[in-house]
């Protein structure tokens, strides 16, 4: 079949950003960013298996300012991706499909992601200073 210039559906840049599309894009960005977290998980555990002189690299990196900033970003991405993933699975079984409930669950999901990130770091710091 000959290729012709057929009309295309409007692309992302045509639309005004909406909560639904923005949350969906962030979901994918978090997923891509979490790929680097998986690499860190791999590096962390491989160095732990390789010996103390190798594990020192992981410890040096993760306890640096860059390491802490990345851990904070990874933890938020993880909670966001998890909360939105749960939202997706409710849609998969046909629950929460009305426009209204999609907006309500979207706002709740973002709040839950921030809440869980805050809770995990808050408890972590609490355990750190009271151990």
């Amino acid at each position: 079949m000959a290729l012709r210039d057929r009309p295309l559906s409007p692309h992302l840049q045509i639309y005004r950003p909406q909560l639904t599309s923005v949350l969906s894009i962030i979901h994918r960005l978090c997923g891509v960013f979490l790929a680097s977290g998986a690499m860190m998980l791999c590096f962390w555990l491989v160095t732990a298996a390789a010996g103390p002189e190798y594990y020192a690299w992981s410890e040096w990196f993760l306890t640096s300012w860059v390491g802490y900033a990345l851990l904070l970003a990874w933890s938020f991405s993880l909670f966001y991706h998890m909360c939105n993933g749960i939202r997706h699975m409710f849609w998969d079984i046909g629950v929460g499909f009305s426009i209204k409930s999609i907006y309500v669950s979207g706002v709740f999901m973002v709040l839950a992601a921030f809440g869980l990130t805050g809770l995990s770091w808050g408890l972590g710091l609490y355990f750190y200073f009271t151990r």
Partner: peptide
């Protein structure tokens, strides 16, 4: 894998707390 990762992720985060309590992320 999503379904599996929900409890496993929560376990992973809780384990990080446990490591902090247990003496930090030392070797």
């Amino acid at each position: 894998t999503s379904l599996m990762l929900i409890p496993l992720t929560l376990w992973f985060v809780a384990s990080m707390w446990w490591l902090v309590v247990d003496g930090g992320f030392t070797y």
